[in-house]
């Protein structure tokens, strides 16, 4: 029973971390390796608004998400747009940006001291005899809402449909008058905001540390690769798969294996089925 509860919470957390990455890749085919850095940036901005500037918690969260979104859009507009289409350069460039941000934080003294965010709701409750605090329940709730919102957004709004059109066939979308570069900026901003949302939801559960940036990046990549790059539904399913496997290994072998599971999942998925467990792209396996 505790496996079920912790597994669900962990899976939703993973899905939140990965959705931004999946969204950006799905729409603009840009592997945003600065995703983890944006996650930490968002957490840090929230912290400085709440703790240093003394703003209202909700206001600082919204501000932090907006700022993170703008940073993501700027990264795309000024750096990634120059290497658009060259996947390797995109990876190297975005990874270098992420590295610069994270190591910049570390140099700036963002270590040693503990930076924490307050939880949204104090207290806990019992579910089937297992204590679960309110904040984790809130994470699960908001995670579900975000997934539902994304689905509705991409299926029923104009801009969402344009994004989906671009994801499926960029050239055709261009011919229909969809500005693909603008849409990519929008996608990047959205993706970054999702990274920010994940950060403000998940960081109150622990400390804000630079290493979280690397771990979030790896977890996001793991979820997206296992789910099939570019497939959001796959990403959500994969988040549950990896989430439960992680909880099982942690329970039976130890906490060290949590990241090993994610890393091995990436390697084995790529070796055995590069298009991912739930991906629909056949071209990878069969191309002449």
């Amino acid at each position: 029973m505790d496996i079920l509860i912790y597994g669900t919470i962990n899976s939703i957390a993973l899905a939140l971390m990965a959705l931004g990455f999946a969204l950006v890749y799905g729409i603009s085919r840009v592997p945003n390796f600065a995703h983890g850095a944006l996650y930490v940036v968002s957490g840090f901005i929230t912290w400085s608004f709440v703790r240093a500037a003394g703003l209202n918690y909700l206001v600082s969260i919204i501000l932090a998400m907006v700022i993170t979104g703008v940073i993501g859009a700027l990264i795309y507009q000024f750096v990634l747009i120059r290497v658009r289409g060259m996947a390797i350069s995109e990876i190297i460039a975005s990874y270098a940006i992420g590295l610069a941000i994270l190591e910049g934080f570390r140099w700036w003294g963002f270590k040693g001291m503990t930076y924490t965010l307050p939880v949204f709701l104090e207290g806990s409750t019992d579910i089937a005899g297992i204590p679960v605090d309110f904040h984790r329940l809130l994470v699960v709730g908001i995670g579900g809402v975000v997934v539902a919102f994304l689905w509705l957004f991409t299926h029923y709004t104009r801009i969402g449909l344009a994004l989906r059109g671009m994801a499926q066939d960029e050239r055709a979308a261009l011919m229909l008058g969809i500005d693909s570069d603008f849409m990519a900026v929008v996608a990047m901003a959205f993706g970054s905001m999702l990274a920010g949302l994940a950060a403000v939801l998940l960081l109150p559960l622990g400390n804000i540390v630079v290493e979280a940036g690397y771990n979030v990046l790896i977890l996001a990549i793991a979820v997206c690769i296992v789910g099939g790059l570019g497939s959001w539904v796959g990403a959500v399913l994969a988040a549950f798969l990896i989430g439960f496997i992680q909880i099982l290994t942690v329970m039976y072998w130890g906490a060290h294996y949590q990241m090993v599971v994610a890393l091995l999942a990436i390697i084995f998925t790529l070796i055995l089925k590069p298009s991912g467990l739930f991906g629909q792209q056949k071209e990878l396996e069969e191309r002449v």
């Binding site: 390797i88 990549i221 090993v260 790529l270 070796i271």
Partner: peptide, 26 residues
């Protein structure tokens, strides 16, 4: 991993050193 193309090979090679470091640690 050798049959993998471009991005996929890049990602998988990026993960190899990390996984070995974590395994040695674990």
């Amino acid at each position: 991993c050798l049959p993998l193309r471009g991005v996929y090979f890049a990602i998988v090679t990026l993960m190899y050193p990390l996984v070995f470091a974590r395994i040695i640690e674990a």
